[in-house]
């Protein structure tokens, strides 16, 4: 178990619900779930979830820490917000799933190689680096995330679409040399670093 994970678990004496309430974004809402199952039935990728949101809420209360945080379920969220608008108890379910996924990622418990986890990281790194997303570099990073050979295969498979987008002037090959960016990249980097520092400070103070 990683040191960070150990530190996270220690203050809660196996009370996973309390840990989620204090450390996961919008986690305080979990206890409000009344197990109606509307979220599970409303999710466009519902069938793909090993544990639906409804089940995850109950598993948190039952203290199933490893099963929840190591699951790839939360990474099936497409951010469609259907569960949020339909929840009769008004739980911000989308946010809670994002929060759980982020928490599991941060502790290093989220499944390795989970594709949405991987592209989420690539997207963030890509956009924060210059302040704006570089779609060409992001696409290439996605194709090549599983190695060079697989990258070439992926790029070839998507070649027709890429060329179509270039012809439609919606993908610019010149973006490889930098492309769009913010002027105050330094300020953006410093501000994000500060936000992370504050967040870590807060996590250290809970429990």
């Amino acid at each position: 178990m990683s040191e960070q994970n150990q530190q996270a678990i220690a203050p809660y004496h196996n009370n996973f619900l309390k840990e989620v309430e204090e450390r996961v974004e919008d986690g305080a809402w979990v206890k409000m779930c009344m197990q109606c199952g509307v979220c599970a039935g409303s999710c466009p990728l519902g069938d793909a979830w090993e544990h639906t949101p409804q089940k995850i809420f109950m598993m948190i209360r039952a203290g199933k820490r490893e099963e929840v945080l190591k699951s790839d379920s939360m990474w099936m969220c497409t951010s469609c917000y259907n569960c949020i608008v339909r929840c009769p108890r008004k739980l911000p379910i989308t946010h809670i799933m994002h929060g759980l996924a982020h928490y599991a990622h941060r502790l290093g418990l989220a499944p390795k190689g989970q594709p949405t986890r991987d592209i989420a990281k690539l997207f963030w790194v890509n956009s924060v680096k210059t302040g704006r997303v570089n779609e060409l570099k992001f696409s290439l990073a996605m194709y090549f995330k599983d190695g060079f050979i697989q990258g070439i295969r992926n790029a070839l498979a998507m070649q027709a679409i890429g060329l179509g987008l270039m012809k439609a002037k919606r993908l610019n090959p010149m973006e490889i040399f930098g492309g769009h960016k913010c002027k105050d990249q330094g300020g953006i980097r410093k501000m994000i670093a500060k936000a992370r520092e504050i967040e870590e400070r807060k996590q250290a103070h809970t429990a």
Partner: peptide, 19 residues
């Protein structure tokens, strides 16, 4: 002037709430 990316719906994975 000089607007930046919003983080989009996928930004949650790496970026925490405050960032």
């Amino acid at each position: 002037p000089d607007w930046n990316c919003c983080g989009a719906s996928i930004g949650y994975g790496e970026g925490g709430e405050l960032p």
